[in-house]
Simulated scan of single mutants.
Amino acid sequence: MVMWWLSSQPKGQRQVVVSILPSFICWHIWKARNKAVWEGISLSSGDICHGIIQDVVLAVSSEVNRWNLLPFFDQFFDRLSEPPMPLQCKIVRWRAAGTRIATLNTDGCSKGNPRASGGGGVLRDSEGRFLIGYSVCLGVSTSLLAEVLALLAGLRFCHQRGFTQVRVQSDSLVLVGILQCWFQCSWQIRREVFHIWQLAEDSGHFSHCFRETNTVADILANEGLLHPLVQMKIYNHPCMLPQLARGALRLDRSGFPSLQLLKRTPA
Rank of each mutant, 00 (worst) to 15 (best):
K263M: 06
A200N: 05
Q184P: 04
Q260Y: 07
T215E: 15
Q15G: 05
D202S: 13
S170Y: 04
S8Q: 10
L220N: 09
Q198F: 08
A97E: 07
S207E: 14
K111Q: 02
V17G: 08
V168A: 08
I52A: 13
G177F: 00
L199R: 12
Q260T: 02
H50E: 15
A59Y: 14
C185N: 06
V216S: 13
G108R: 01
P114W: 04
T99I: 14
D55L: 04
W38N: 10
L123Q: 05
A97V: 04
P86A: 12
I20H: 02
G204M: 10
F24R: 03
C239G: 01
V17W: 08
Y235M: 02
R161A: 09
T265V: 02
L69W: 00
L145W: 08
D55C: 15
V168H: 07
G162Q: 07
A245T: 03
S81Y: 05
E82Y: 03
L173I: 03
N113C: 03
G51L: 13
R250K: 01
S126H: 09
S8A: 10
Q54S: 15
V176H: 00
L58I: 15
F206C: 06
G128Y: 01
H50Y: 14
W94S: 04
A59D: 05
S8W: 06
M232Y: 05
L138T: 11
R14V: 08
C109V: 03
R79W: 04
A200T: 00
S44F: 12
S203Q: 14
G51I: 11
A97C: 13
R115N: 06
Q75F: 11
S61Y: 13
G154M: 05
G51Q: 15
R167T: 08
C109Y: 01
V92M: 05
T213F: 14
S141F: 03
K233T: 12
P83V: 12
G139Y: 11
F206L: 12
C26P: 06
L251H: 03
S254W: 03
F256S: 10
S62T: 04
M85F: 05
F77A: 13
Q54I: 10
A217V: 12
V18P: 07
M85H: 01
A150S: 10
G162H: 06
I52V: 15
N105P: 09
L123E: 03
F256T: 07
L104P: 04
R167H: 13
L241E: 08
T164V: 11
F163H: 05
